[in-house]
Design a protein around this nucleic acid. Structure first.
Lengths: 211, 211
DNA sequence: GAAAGCTCTAAGCGCTTGCTCACCAGCAGG
DNA sequence: CCTGCTGGTGAGCAAGCGCTTAGAGCTTTC
C-alpha cells in the first residue's frame, strides 16, 4: 500500500505563492474572515484590521473585495485539482489510487478547512466571469475521480452501477468535510482521511485484495 | 421491501403551518432569497418585494430579519428530525430502516433543496441563543442515524468499524445534496434517494439479503 | 539632495442597509 | 355615522458599507 504517491496536501506553507508580503497578509486575513463569517458578512475594514492595516491599504493590492475572493478561490481550486490529479495519475490499481485521492483530498479539506470552506461555499458570491472560470476547474476535479472509477470498473476491481452518480457522491462526501470539521475537534485530518478512504472503497464495491 | 414506513417528505404543502397568510408569503419569499443569495446578501427590501409588499410590512409579522431565518431554520430542522425519526422507528431490519432514512432524507434535501440550503448552510448567521436551540435539534437528527447503525451492528447486519464516524459520514453525504442538487438537474429527488440508499448500505457493509 | 516611486494612512463620499414611525384603507360593532 | 382594530404604506433615520482621494513617510535613483 505505497504505490500511489500520497502526500501533496502539505506544502511549505499555505499561501507562499502570493507575492508582496502585505498582499499575502491581507489574503490570509480575508480567508479567515470569509470562512468565519461568510463573504457578504465580512467587511473590508475587518479584513484590513486583521492584517494590521488601514482599510485603504487593501485597495493598493486588490481592486475590489471580490478580487480577493476570486484569488482565494482560484488558488484553492488549483490546489484541489492538483491533489486529485496527483492521485489519479499515480501508480497502482484503481483501488489504491481512489483511496489515495480520497485520503489526500479529505486531509486537505480537514486540515485547511478554513480555506476549503471559502473555496467550496462562497462560489456564487463571485461575478459571472470569475465563477465560470472556477467552474471549469471544478469540472477538472470531477474528471479525475471519474477516471479512477472508470478504470476500476473496466479492470473489474469495482462494482459501480452508476458511475456519474457515484463520482458525484464521492466528491460530495469529501467536500462536506469542510463544513463540519473541527466543530467537535475529536479527529485529526489523517484519521478522517483514512476513515473516508475506507468508506469510499466500500461504496465502489472494491474487492478487499487483488482483482 | 415495504416494512419501514417510507413517505414523510411530501406534506400537503411546504409551509402550511405558518399562520397568517401574509406571514407565510413573506417566509416563503425569505427562503427563496436566502437560498439564492445567502442570508447576509439578502435585503429586507428584497424579501418584501418578492412577497409583493412594502419593506415595512415585514416588521408587522417578524421582529427582525434574523427572526425570519430562525423560524425557517427551526421548522426545517423539525421536519428533518421527523423524517429521520419516522425511518428509525419504522419496522423492519436495520438495513431497511437505514435505506428508508437515507432515501427520504435525501429526497427532502433534493426536492426542497432551496429550503434545505438555508437550513443547513445559514446556521451561523443566527445569534448565539437561536443557534444553540437549533444545534440541539441537529443532535437529535444525528442520534436517529446512530441508533440504526447501533442496531445493525448489534444484529450482525452491518460491518461498521467506526460507528460515530460513519454516522457523521452518512449524514454529511445526505446534507451535501442540498448544495449540488439542481445544478445540473438531470436526476429526480427519487433517483438520487435510491442511489444514495444503495451507496450507504455498501458503506455499512450490509449483507445483501437477510442477516 | 531633490525628484520619483511605493506603500500606507486619515478622512470622508455616496449609497444601501435594517428598521421605525406617522398615517391610512377596510371592516366589525353600536 | 363614528369608533377601534387589524394589516398595510411612504418616507426617512442612523449606521455601516465599499471604495476614493490627498497626502505622509520611507527608499531608491541620479
Amino acid at each position: 500500500m505505497a504505490a500511489a504517491k500520497d502526500d501533496s496536501a502539505g506544502e511549505d506553507r499555505p499561501w507562499g505563492e502570493v507575492a508582496p508580503e502585505a498582499a499575502r497578509r491581507l489574503l490570509i486575513a480575508a480567508v479567515d474572515a470569509f470562512a468565519e463569517r461568510g463573504y457578504h458578512a465580512t467587511t473590508t475594514r475587518d479584513i484590513a484590521g486583521r492584517a494590521g492595516m488601514s482599510p485603504a491599504a487593501l485597495y493598493i493590492h486588490y481592486k475590489t473585495k471580490e478580487e480577493l475572493l476570486y484569488r482565494i478561490s482560484r488558488i484553492g481550486h488549483e490546489k484541489a485539482v492538483e491533489i486529485l490529479r496527483t492521485a489519479a495519475e499515480g501508480e497502482g490499481g484503481a483501488a489504491e489510487r481512489l483511496a489515495c485521492a480520497v485520503r489526500s483530498f479529505v486531509r486537505w479539506h480537514a486540515g485547511q478547512h478554513t480555506t476549503a470552506r471559502v473555496v467550496q461555499y462562497e462560489l456564487d458570491a463571485l461575478g459571472a466571469e470569475s465563477r465560470a472560470e472556477i467552474v471549469t476547474l471544478r469540472r477538472q476535479a470531477d474528471a479525475q475521480v471519474r477516471v479512477i472509477l472508470d478504470d476500476g470498473v473496466a479492470a473489474g476491481e469495482f462494482d459501480v452501477p452508476d458511475i456519474p452518480g457515484t463520482t458525484l457522491a464521492v466528491l460530495s462526501l469529501c467536500i462536506d468535510v469542510a463544513r463540519w470539521f473541527n466543530a467537535a475537534g475529536r479527529r485529526t485530518p489523517d484519521e478522517v482521511g483514512t476513515l473516508y478512504a475506507d468508506l469510499v472503497l466500500r461504496m465502489v464495491g472494491a474487492k478487499p485484495a487483488g482483482g
